[in-house]
Every structure is written in C-alpha cells, then in structure tokens.
C-alpha cells in the first residue's frame, strides 16, 4: 500500500526520531510567529488606510465631535493630575542632581525640555491608551461579538466609517492638545517643587523655561503626539474590531484579552516609535 506524504501524521517524524524535525521545529514555530506578525501588520495597515479614506465621507462631523469629547475632554483631569506630579517629581529629582554641581538654576531648562520633548508626548499617549484606548477596544470588541458590527453591515453602514474613522480624527486632534496641557501643567508642577518647596528663585525658573524651549521642541513634541495618536487608535480599534478572529479565546474572554493586548501593544509601540521618531527629529 502506498502512503501519500500529505496524509502523514505531523507527529510521525518525531516518533521515528528523524533529527531534521527536531532541529527545524523551533524555527518553524518562529517562522509561523513572524508570518502571523507580518500578516497582522499588513492587515492593520490596510485597516488604517481604509479608515482614513472613510474620514472624508459625509455625516462624520457629529461622530468626530462626540469622540473628541470622549477621548479628549474626558481625559483632561487625568492628564492634568499625571502631568502635575510628573513635573513635581522631575523638579525634585533634578534639583538634587543639579545642586551637586551648583547648577540648580538650570532646573527650569531641565524640566521644560524633558517634558516638551519627551515625557509630555509619551506619558500623555500612555495615559490616553489606559483611559480611552482600552475603552475603545472593549466597546468595539463587544459590538463585534454581539453582532452589532454585522448589523451595521446589513444596514449598509460601513463599520470603518461609523466606528473607526471618527476615533482616528478625534485622537489626531486630542493627542497634541492634551500633550500641550500635560507640558504646561508639568512645568507648573516643577515650579511647585522647585520654587515653592525647595526655594529656587521663581524668576530664574521661568526665565530658563522661556529661554530654553524653542519652537522646534514644541513642534517635535506635537509630531510625536500625532504619531502616537495614529498608533494608539489603530492598535486599539484593530484589536477590538477583529476580536472574533482570536484563536485563543471566545466571547467575553476574547474581549478581555484583546483589551489587554491593545494596551500592552500600544505602550510598547509608543516607546519604540518614540525612539525612532526622536532619532529622525534630533
């Protein structure tokens, strides 16, 4: 009897102990992961591209305003809180470092440049991911598993236009504004710890802030914020939109895992892209 090689049990080689399988198996697994990752990247890029095209379809303005309220306006409190304490701790740590060199007068420079160039965009993006990004994934994921997205399809409403495009526009508008707010409140936090609590001269602090921060620093921070906005909304919406395609879980569990993946992946991509963007801008 002849045996078709395609019908062979995949585990058969292992039983017969062929060394090839033993050696190639780890690479096969790695290869599968890489292929899957590349597939997801491609799918996410197409997802983003289609959603961006849909931005310019009619009847988008009310949905965009609603999302700006949700992603932007409702994040103001948490951004101010985090920004203020980030500025305070930055002022505190930097003061004790600078005082060793007798350079405590440069505190304003250090706080302002750190916030405007780096910490402002990154921490704002991470905080929005935690607050609004996770909610986006969960909401879209639930809409997917409860067939609400299929219902949109049956009503001839493009789900990308209805659910994704307004979120992308709202994030592009909200991220830079919240970053600016974070920077401003952070500088005030640095003032409170450096000037009010540690006794640096207020005029010196604000003079250093004003003289050291250039327009390029501000625009570079905004460019980062825009990049993070696109990354966060794409990752979070993509994870929610395709939550039903997960092979590791179903139903509510898949929404929970998608939300976790969205937050973790967004944070990692924020930091990775931060390095890449900074290396281009610097």
């Amino acid at each position: 009897m002849t045996t078709n090689s395609h019908d062979q049990d995949p585990g058969e080689n292992e039983v017969t102990g062929q060394p090839g399988t033993f050696l190639t198996r780890p690479f096969a697994g790695l290869g599968r992961k890489v292929v899957s990752w590349v597939n997801h990247m491609g799918a996410a890029a197409i997802f983003l591209g289609k959603a961006c095209i849909m931005i310019f379809r009619p009847k988008q303005i009310p949905a965009i305003i609603q999302q700006i309220y949700y992603i932007g306006a409702k994040s103001i409190t948490i951004i101010m809180l985090v920004g203020f304490f980030t500025g305070m701790v930055l002022g505190l740590q930097s003061y004790h470092a600078l005082v060793k060199f007798g350079a405590q007068g440069a505190l304003g420079t250090l706080v302002a440049l750190s916030l405007v160039r780096e910490l402002g965009p990154v921490l704002t993006a991470i905080m929005i991911t935690a607050r609004a990004g996770s909610a986006m994934t969960a909401e879209i994921g639930i809409q997917r598993i409860s067939e609400q997205i299929d219902a949109l399809d049956t009503m001839r409403i493009d789900p990308l236009k209805f659910l994704i495009s307004p979120r992308i526009v709202a994030a592009i508008i909200s991220f830079p504004l919240l970053t600016a707010l974070f920077d401003l409140v952070g500088i005030l936090g640095g003032y409170v710890s450096g000037v009010v609590l540690l006794g640096i001269n207020a005029g010196t602090y604000f003079h250093r802030v004003q003289s050291s921060v250039e327009m390029k620093d501000v625009t570079d921070g905004f460019i980062k914020a825009l990049v993070f906005a696109v990354i966060v909304t794409t990752v979070c919406c993509y994870q929610g939109y395709f939550t039903h395609m997960r092979t590791d879980s179903y139903g509510a569990k898949s929404v929970s895992l998608s939300t976790t993946s969205a937050v973790v992946l967004s944070c990692v991509l924020i930091l990775v892209s931060d390095y890449i963007v900074t290396s281009f801008l610097i």
């Binding site: 409860s146 609400q148 219902a151 049956t154 009503m155 001839r156 409403i157």
Partner: peptide, 24 residues
C-alpha cells in the same frame, strides 16, 4: 433582523431605529 437583535446598547430606541435612515 438578527436572532439576538444586535441593537446598539449605547443608543436609545429612537436612535437605534433611526440609524439606517440617518446614515444611508
């Protein structure tokens, strides 16, 4: 008409019914 209704739970009854007219 879906088996589990597939209504938008963040929208009122009016908005759910009006949605296809408003959007299409």
């Amino acid at each position: 008409m879906f088996q589990n209704n597939a209504l938008f739970d963040s929208m009122t009854v009016y908005d759910n019914v009006a949605l296809p007219l408003q959007q299409t």
